[in-house]
């Protein structure tokens, strides 16, 4: 577990689905955007491997919050979105 509550993170601007078959739990509209860790949700087998019946090492899962103004040009100030993201999709911001 590399991140702590309150850490500023960015979702990787990565598009594995353009490189071949992929199963991804990171919604496209969040890639490249900056958020903040709000909760640690435990370690879980990586669904990107599970979906292809590959050995699935456990990865830390976090609840990450994003201001709506970060995601949408007309996002409303003070509204936010929170989403479960795996650690390997996050970078320090």
């Amino acid at each position: 577990m590399n991140f702590s509550i309150g850490d500023a993170v960015a979702v990787k601007d990565d598009w594995p689905e353009t490189r071949g078959p992929a199963h991804i739990r990171t919604p496209h509209y969040l890639r490249g955007h900056k958020g903040q860790i709000v909760r640690y949700l435990g370690d879980h087998p990586n669904p990107e491997d599970l979906a292809f019946a590959r050995p699935a090492p456990k990865r830390p899962l976090y609840h990450v919050t994003f201001p709506m103004t970060e995601l949408w040009p007309d996002g409303r100030a003070n509204d936010s979105l929170v989403v479960e993201l795996y650690e390997h999709w996050l970078e320090r911001a």
Binding site: R25, T26, P27, L41, G42, H44, P47, L61, T65, M68, R76, N78, D79, S80, L81, V82, V83, E84, L85, Y86
Partner: peptide, 12 residues
């Protein structure tokens, strides 16, 4: 009132 949209994408 602040809206928190919860996008349920993974194991919870």
């Amino acid at each position: 009132v602040q809206i928190h949209v919860v996008d349920s994408t993974a194991d919870y």
